[in-house]
Design a binder for these strands. Structure first.
Length: 256
DNA sequence: ATGGCTTCATAGTGAAGA
């Protein structure tokens, strides 16, 4: 039996619903984690996704943030927020699907080094690492998917010199992400040989997508047991090339 | 490349994203 996990920052579920349902029909993920739904729970498109074959758990708000987990099979043990972290909870949702613990994340943007939002991003990451360490100890079949808002290495940046020290690339952010990975996770994309210049986000401006001026900030992180079963990890640039796209592309991982 | 979109909340523009 094979299994497909995916993550996609849709940048407004309302605007992107046609792209999402088309993509679900073609990519056929068993589980899809969504970020930046920007949708209050009362307005979540439950019926449309049900018609597409997916049940959903979600936690959203008006205008900003919002996360969801879609699944073809039953979703249980839903949890919101990072335990013991006094934060608005609409950046994380976790659930159990098919014996796997799925954590869906929308990491803070951070604005720029030196700002309050940047300090909050680093605090959020520290709390995340603590939570995931406990989660992994309790649930070894752990998969963490989402928009991490950090490009982990220079090869994940189209122009590292240009981006040096900037938001998404600064050393404190990279250290913060590395501490999350080091609780016992592996970056699924790097389990396999990949082409160079592989990104998951491109600025809306300046025809950045056409020029492949991007960053790899969306990822799938796997506990050892799941990494051992992972057969492929790819970034699906298809939806980014459509009219009125999300600025992010989906990341997909396959399992045997 | 030094911002030149896009979204949302609004009812003019401004905030925020990355």
């Amino acid at each position: 039996m094979t299994f497909r996990l995916a993550t996609w920052n849709v940048n407004s579920l309302k605007v992107r619903l046609p792209h999402l349902t088309d993509w679900l029909a073609s990519a056929k993920p068993d589980v899809a984690c969504l970020q930046e739904t920007k949708t209050e729970d009362a307005n979540f498109p439950v019926a449309e996704l049900q018609a597409a074959g997916y049940q959903a758990v979600y936690c959203g708000q008006k205008a900003y943030n919002g996360v969801a987990i879609l699944s073809r099979s039953a979703i249980t043990e839903v949890a919101h927020g990072i335990p013991d972290f006094p934060d608005d909870p609409r950046r994380t949702i976790a659930a159990t699907v098919a014996g796997m613990r799925i954590v869906c994340l929308y990491a803070p943007n951070g604005e720029a080094p030196g700002t309050q939002k940047y300090a909050y991003k680093l605090r959020w990451y520290e709390a995340l690492a603590g939570w995931l360490k406990d989660e992994l100890a309790r649930r070894p079949r752990l998969a963490v998917l989402g928009d991490m808002n950090v490009a982990p290495e220079d090869r994940d940046v189209h122009d590292p010199k240009r981006w040096e020290g900037m938001i998404h690339v600064s050393e404190p952010e990279r250290t913060a992400l590395r501490k999350v990975v080091e609780v016992g996770l592996q970056d699924a994309l790097r389990l396999f040989p990949q082409p160079e210049k592989l990104f998951s986000w491109w600025d809306y401006r300046l025809r950045a997508f056409q020029r492949n001026w991007g960053l790899r900030i969306d990822m799938i992180l796997l506990a050892r047991e799941l990494a051992a079963r992972c057969t492929a990890c790819t970034i699906d640039k298809g939806p980014r090339a459509l009219e009125r796209p999300s600025d992010h592309a989906p990341v997909i991982a396959d399992f045997k």
